[in-house]
Amino acid sequence: MNMVFSLLAIVILIFIAMGGAAIAGLKPVFFVVIPCGAFAVFVAGFIHRILSWGRLPVPFSIPTTCGQAKSLPWIKCDYLESPPCTATVIGRMALEVLLFRSLFRNTRLYLYDERPVYSSAKWLWFFALLFHWSLLVIILRHMRFFIEPVAPLINGLAAIDGFFDIAIPTIFLSDAAIVLALTFLFLRRVVVRELRYISLLTDYFAVVLILCVAITGILMRHFFPVDIEEVKTMALGWVTFAPYVPKEMSALFYIHLLFVSVLLAWFPFSKLMHMGGVFLSPTRNMANDSRMSRHFNPWNAPVKVHTYEEYEDEYRDKMKAAGLPLDKE
């Protein structure tokens, strides 16, 4: 049911975009107001979410470790799995952010001879990694529409991405990879019974929305070309604060742009915020140093204490009279 509703949301978006394409008067809305508004919501919402997380105290030292902690000198410390200091935490975070190390440890549980058995399951890790890196390459390649002159780095990236020079225009490997990876990630939620049970509307929506962005982009590149000079002039209009409304654009371009705008505007309110959140996970970004330095709970109210020195000062005469030993005479 969740899946049906998420697909329904996509269809509604397509109809909105096609409606926009049919009415010429709505061009400034679809080509300036919606994309710029979506970008503003994305930036402001993202910062708001990060600040709201930054205001949450971390009461305990809770790094999740899976290696030998730093201990006696002859016991070998596993620096990346149980980082004792900031530098090793950075190493561990880099592995997590760039290579999804915790997903790599994903296991599958199944019954063998009526006994539960865990086995390694790397598919999710592989396709998740493939998807995220492809998305990064695609976003960087799209910079060619936003910067003039196009930086050599962006052209170089496009050249590597289109290395095999298949077809005209060249098929980008990242385009093929992202469709493959997203199809896997979507089917995984549809086919696996347990995952279908726990999948929410937004889980499907996120995957399908990005998949639709990729597919409309590929359609425009290889099957129904659009005037990309107009597209770039419009994109440059946004970033130089000189809005430009392009001439005739196909409905496909309206759909692509609306999908991207919806993705950007929805981003800060969705689970896609793991883009910023991954850096703020206490289980990953804290050092396992609880035996070396004390972690203070910021919640702790100031406690009123009565030290022994104060106690002795208060009762010195009485203690002396009773013949009790005193620290200070």
């Binding site: 994305f42 930036v43 993202f46 910062i47 990060i50 600040l51 930054g54 205001r55 949450l56 105290p57 971390v58 910079m143 936003f146 910067i147 003039e148 930086a151 440059l236 970033v239 130089t240 910023g276 850096f279 910021p298």
Partner: peptide, 29 residues
Amino acid sequence: KLYNRGIIIAGIVVFLAAVTFPFWYDRGK
């Protein structure tokens, strides 16, 4: 209170620099 103020602000600055890169690149043109 904002905890770990320095690193949070630094992260937000990096994010802003990344997403507004085209604005800086094309400024004044």
